[in-house]
Design a protein around this nucleic acid. Sequence first.
RNA 1: GGAGGGGUGGCCGAGCGGUCAAUGGCAGCAGACUGUAAAUCUGCCGACGGAAGUCUACGUAAGUUCAAAUCUUACCCCCUCCA
Length: 390
Amino acid sequence: MYRNFGFSVVSSSGKSRLGIIETPHGRIKTPAFIFCGTKASVKGIFPQMLRDTNTQIILANTYHLFAYPGAECIKKRGGLHKFTGWNGPMLTDSGGFQIFSLGYGSVADEIKGRRSGIPTLMRVEEQGAIFRSYWDGSVLRLTPEKSVEIQRNLGADFMVAFDECTPYHSDKNYTEQSMERSHRWEKRSLDEFIRGNDFSQALYGIVQGGVHFDLRKRSTEFVGEHPFFATAIGGTLGAAKEQMYEVVEMTMNGLDDKRPVHLLGIGGIVDIFKGVELGVDTFDCVHPTRIARHGGALIKPPYRNSLQCEHINLRRSRYLEDDNPIELDCDCFTCKEFSRAYLHYLLKANELLALSAITVHNIRFMNKLMEEIRIGILNKNLHCVRDKWC
RNA sequence: GGAGGGGUGGCCGAGCGGUCAAUGGCAGCAGACUGUAAAUCUGCCGACGGAAGUCUACGUAAGUUCAAAUCUUACCCCCUCCA
């Protein structure tokens, strides 16, 4: 069923594991970070720059590309790889997250336990979800079958089953019903996937269940009983970090260890170590690339202003007089060429180069982090790597 | 020389008798950002004070009025047009 795909664990240390995921577009060494190229572009960055920073895999989003320009359009252009010029492994998200995160407010607030925003979700029914397009406000409908069809046309290596991303503020009763419906949707996604399988793609199942351990357990059982290639941990993970770690740990305990595990939407440095220590293989998050465009450069402890904050804000005026690179020991193009003073100036001057330059640093930073994590697992000294980065 | 228009907080620019320490925008300062509606969003932004509040402010000076950034007069400066 997944004859052009594979996953093998090369080495492990505790629950942490060093692995290889095989895809038609190359191998992914895990643990790995997946960068978000939501609208078929990692904002501000050429594919060549992604390769030069040792990026292994990126993702694009069904919801955004469905709304515009449409999956058929991209299929006609030869699929996402050809369309974007990124020839490495790629994943498309199912669109489930957007429908519900946008539906309940501004992006992800509700999922993360914060309230705000204007609803765009119109109706969730057994068949699928009806919502307004972020692009033009038109009414769109997404079903499991439609999501898989779109993702097939987009042509990424990995596609994700269509689910409902249940908000943090939902009560347990709703979370349970939503989870059961997500399971039915995932089953339909799988059926549609199998119906059209040409072995060029593989499907991820998603664990839901919110912050409730018993629901998470049932959801891991559901996903494990169905022939998904890999497992993603989705839904709300709680409002506070401690709760997130608990939910992830509990979920990991119930998962099939033969499959790769992806933790959706998590990308903090400490969070990644936590995930890796619990056996997570891949992560994705907008954080590194988004904060870059807001002037935030990811940074290791020696260069930090405070222990809690994993980045520095280059918009602060103090950096106008700072002739150092973002990090003295970083091997990225930005750190080799540009000072903090220049980057600060570029941000203030509204020059686009600032956004690309900091994004390049953050991408290289994340890739370097994952490289060292892999070495740490191999050498059984992950804690040393952690001490360096956290 | 004549006619007209204008001088407002770091800048641009509203206000045209009280509800004005003065709308906006920019700049400045601080914060947020975790399956991207995000080159976005939020807060602060005359001085002193924790706050209530007090003081100093709308070119300068004098005046009218209970009350003036807003009305009057004089002066200073800037812009446009005509000679």
